[in-house]
Amino acid sequence: MGHRDPRRLSRRQFGVLGTQVSGAVIAVLLGIPIVGFLISPLFRQQQAVWRKVGDIAGVPDGEPTKFEVAFPQDVWTTAEENLAVYVVKTGDNTKVFSNVCTHMQCPVRWETALHQFLCPCHGGLYDINGANVGGPPPKPLPQYVHRTDGTTLFVQNRFTEEI
């Protein structure tokens, strides 16, 4: 083989190259749609929906009260999903919390005896203003985007801050 011009492909090298190129073509043609398919849900904007929570005139001052609101699941299923909404009134101020812990997203609950929100998973604690005051949660309790119409509360399936 030594007598050949090294700049020219030998028949054998050509075969190698052809095999590799064919493999690469197949891999790319397969890979693009699959990767796209995998990550496509990430680029779909979640639809923001307003839902009525109810009349909050009766919510006592300084005592978080739980409501449940159904939201669409935003994909093929028509079944809706209930989410928990904690309404907290302190004086004139109304806050609307979710029950999602900012640590690992376990369901937080209001403990009257402790006067705090407790996360049963790893003992995270939030005070009545949602501040993370104990245990592992790194951020305050998430709040829903909301508006009131008189004493009727509406929330969106969106938090004011990403968690």
Binding site: E68, A84, P107, V108, R109, C121, H122, G123, P136
Partner: peptide, 24 residues
């Protein structure tokens, strides 16, 4: 499954316990 629960206490699978304890 009920995402709105405020009474359910999630308990990890036993083989997940060491990691869960680390989370605590």
């Amino acid at each position: 499954a009920d995402p709105a629960t405020t009474s359910y206490t999630p308990v990890p699978e036993w083989f997940f316990l060491p990691l869960d304890e680390l989370l605590v």
